[in-house]
Nucleic acid binder design. Structure first.
Lengths: 317, 317
DNA sequence: CGGTTACCAGAACGGATGTTCAACTCATGG
DNA sequence: CCATGAGTTGAACATCCGTTCTGGTAACCG
């Protein structure tokens, strides 16, 4: 992190006085490329903040349509791109806006497993909120972390918000039901889970049953997957698999999970799903239709697929 | 003014989601050029606001140098450009920042004659301040208005700030001292001038004696100019000419002016000079050195010339 | 002391953006 | 019904900006 002052100067000269990168470079004795980089840094780090004074979202109609169809509290939609990473970034940006709107200045936010929530972190530029806490609502897995472990998400989000963070020291999926019970009995684990259960806001991904669609699904063995599907599972929220009616599928896998149950999750008043992509549509549609989640952050393509899926359901059901 | 909503959408897609003008055009069914224009409008009109979270000004040292040399309260400096209109725009932008910092939410701002103050108007995007008033501190001239008549400046600035505006219905320079006295005796004129005299903040230009440097100076006849110079005039603030010591030069011209006197001007606690250009340096330097003005908004070139002039004075005087 | 790694810098390229200009639309008034 | 002019439009151009790639520098290590 270089001198904040230089970034501010360059940003002022460019954004306020309309000087070109070239001109600023000549004025301050820097190369044009250096100026370009300083400006990019300044935007990334939040030194430059761009506000748009207009309540209109670019995808208003689609948002309103989803709110109506599924009876949701609120919906945020980002544009879709051919490049999936770019879409992820836009969804992350939109998720950050959603959090800015929903996160209270005190209280607790429960954070679930999600590849998309990770994309939010770089877009958060908030005032420190020391009376706020971010709590993982389930355990994590070992080995290499792909940036989407619940504990890591809670930690990074919490840090970005200048809030307290909590840890749930257990695996998300224990090897046996008995081992899971033992973990849940641990005082540290129990305490964190109680805190998560009492949260005001839940933010989590919704996974599908397709191996490409979830993080968790490919942690499970082939036979376990087949078993879940056989029991009617259509998706999961942080390892809690649910069927087409939004009920827990139960079974052995469910008993091995260390984390909030579906009932505990739905007891949290505000529940935001952050999820996008064609493989997620079915699971996401179910989670929204059955009320497991009551808000969603997604991209245009997924949103369109959701409305389509919803109307198909209506006709056939 | 087209639908604010469309501007907001386009701005969000570009500034928040990083979409190119081309992509936005395709998404919304607009041409690329149209998108470019919408974005430019959005910035001009303040729908897009860019904040820089850094207190550092690009020309800190120079500002500090002027504050020190002349014992000023504060100084704002804009970059200089080869294209004078661009410089004027930058100074205007900087003046708007200055006003944002200084203008109270209630009270009165006295507005003097200035070509530069006009450049401020397009850069003001403030919350309406209905308890604030903008008052011209002198009369105006007839015929074509080049956008820098005191009454016009007060009106346009006041409008931009959503504030009350006042009018001083008289010429800035009456044809005879007696006519001027008659104007001053008018109840409407007297009332407005009293209001201006009680202002908290004064914002005005500082004119020089060179015909190219002032608006007013070329309204006067050749002989009147010569007379003023002979009496030691080095510059003026809204038609009040002063000498190298900062005192009024008096004389017939001074008696024909309808507007606050130099003594009345300097009774206003906060006095900002907005002025730039090589022809203004001498007058501006005098106004600052003698304390007629105690703040200044100018450009880099003028600022450098001011520090140089000040050190020359110190050596010789 | 050479090798390695990590980082930083600027040349060069290709895409993005801003501006100019000629064509067009649509009122208004003869 | 055409003439006029103000206001829009997008094609074409000129500039600006972002990224990639290569070379350089410094720190760390064997």
């Amino acid at each position: 992190m270089e001198s904040r002052e230089l970034h501010g100067r360059v940003a002022r000269l460019h954004y306020q006085h309309g000087m070109t990168h070239q001109e600023i470079g000549e004025l301050l004795g820097l190369s044009r490329v250096k100026v370009t980089r300083l400006l990019a840094d300044a935007r990334r780090s939040g030194i430059v903040e761009i506000r748009i004074h207009s309540s209109a979202s670019p995808f208003d109609e689609l948002e309103a349509a989803l709110v109506g169809r599924f009876g949701l509290q609120q919906v945020w939609i980002a544009p879709s791109f051919a490049d999936e990473r770019r879409t992820a970034d836009s969804v992350g940006m939109t998720g950050a806006q959603c959090l800015r709107a929903l996160v209270p200045t005190s209280g607790t936010v429960a954070v679930g497993l999600s590849s998309s929530v990770a994309a939010i972190v770089p877009h958060v530029h908030a005032e420190p909120a020391p009376d706020l806490g971010f709590v993982p609502l389930a355990g994590s897995w070992g080995g290499i972390s792909r940036g989407m472990n619940p504990h890591e998400l809670a930690l990074r989000l919490g840090t970005a918000f200048g809030a307290r963070t909590y840890h749930l020291p257990a695996p998300i999926l224990a090897s046996t039901p008995e081992a899971a019970a033992a973990f849940r009995a641990d005082p540290g684990v129990r305490e964190t889970m109680q805190l998560a259960a009492g949260a005001d806001l839940l933010i989590a991904g919704v996974g599908g049953m397709d191996p490409r669609s979830g993080i968790l699904i490919d942690v499970l063995g082939r036979s376990e997957q087949r078993q879940l599907v056989a029991n009617g599972a259509v998706g999961d929220i942080s390892a809690r698999f649910f069927d087409a009616a939004g009920h827990s599928v139960g079974g052995e896998v469910d008993e091995r999970v260390v984390g909030l149950s579906l009932d505990e999750l739905t007891a949290i008043p505000h529940r935001v799903a952050v999820s996008f992509g064609p493989h997620k549509v079915h699971a996401l549609e179910t989670a929204l239709r059955t009320g497991l989640m009551n808000m969603v952050v997604t991209d245009v393509d997924t949103a369109k697929a959701l409305t389509k899926a919803a109307s198909d359901n209506r006709k056939s059901g």
